[in-house]
């Protein structure tokens, strides 16, 4: 009787979303692992091939180049996004009268999807800056930044920072305003300078915000696709392909479903490990209140 009622409640409240979740996420995830050990061509599998797909993936020099490029991108964008976002949060939580307007300005790029942002900046780098450079003779921008691997990397970083710092700013604002006013007043009475208050009181007390912002930027960095496609398209000569785009090209443009999927599994493992390490380390700095 009780059991039947519990089952009825489960079927009313939980069944449909869990079935959809299983179909959309769990099954493809398990399937994806399975496929990497077979000769799957996107349609059917005929035999097991062991670790062949993984061996092939790691023998692919462009995959290594992509992994290097992605790691560099994740590290650099993670550092700059968080430094900038924290700075923005300090500005908009100061006592400036214009702080609400500023917050809107900083946040707006975040509302717009990566693809639209990417093409806006493609225009900026390819056309606007080049036209201005020719007019005013600025050597730095005469050639489009997107034609050069090294500069295209920085273009990707600039757009990523511009896009995601507004979101992380909100995360840091949440952390900053959660600090009790009495603690700050006490430190002021004790004569602590603003910088000292920031370093020894505010930052330790809002460590949780750092855990979250770092996690989100880490994950976002590894998964970045939209800006990459729309800004550089992986060019020049596939030298600015982040791992997402690389997998997409491998599977859907070149039809290598086996290696594409094993690269995707490698990506999943890297993201999971990196996130786990980051969260474990960050958690250690969180003050229990």
């Amino acid at each position: 009787m009780l059991r039947a009622r519990a089952a009825k409640k489960f079927s009313k409240f939980a069944l449909v979303p869990l079935v959809i979740f299983t179909i959309v996420l769990v099954i493809p995830f398990v399937n994806g692992f399975y496929y990497t050990f077979t000769d799957w061509d996107g349609f059917e599998t005929t035999k097991f091939v062991g670790f062949d797909n993984y061996v092939k993936s790691f023998k692919d020099p462009t995959f290594w180049a992509t992994l290097r490029f992605t790691t560099l991108f994740v590290v650099v964008s993670l550092v700059i996004v968080n430094v900038v976002a924290f700075g923005l949060a300090l500005i908009v939580t100061s006592n400036l009268r214009s702080r609400n307007v500023l917050r809107t300005f900083f946040f707006v790029p975040n509302l717009i999807g990566g693809v639209v942002l990417g093409v806006i900046w493609q225009f900026v780098f390819n056309s606007a800056l080049v036209a201005l450079a020719n007019k005013y003779d600025w050597a730095l921008f005469k050639e489009s930044w997107l034609q050069d691997t090294h500069k295209a990397f920085w273009a990707l970083i600039i757009v990523t920072v511009w896009q995601s710092s507004g979101y992380m700013m909100i995360v840091y604002i949440t952390g900053l305003v959660s600090i009790e006013q009495e603690v700050l007043e006490a430190s002021q009475i004790d004569g602590a300078s603003p910088l000292r208050t920031l370093l020894t009181i505010k930052i330790p007390l809002m460590a949780q915000a750092f855990t979250i912002a770092l996690f989100l930027t880490l994950r976002g960095g590894f998964m970045a696709y939209d800006v990459n496609v729309a800004l550089t398209g992986g060019g020049p000569f596939r030298t600015t392909e982040l791992i997402s785009l690389h997998i997409f090209q491998d599977a859907f443009a070149n039809g290598n479903f086996g290696t594409g999927q094993s690269k995707a599994v490698v990506m999943f493992i890297i993201v999971a490990m990196a996130a786990l390490v980051q969260v474990t380390i960050s958690k250690r700095y969180e003050v229990q209140r």
Binding site: L25, P28, F29, S244, A264, V271
Partner: peptide, 12 residues
Amino acid sequence: SMIVPFQALMIP
């Protein structure tokens, strides 16, 4: 499941 990137699923 929130840690699984979409890219790890999209092909299957």
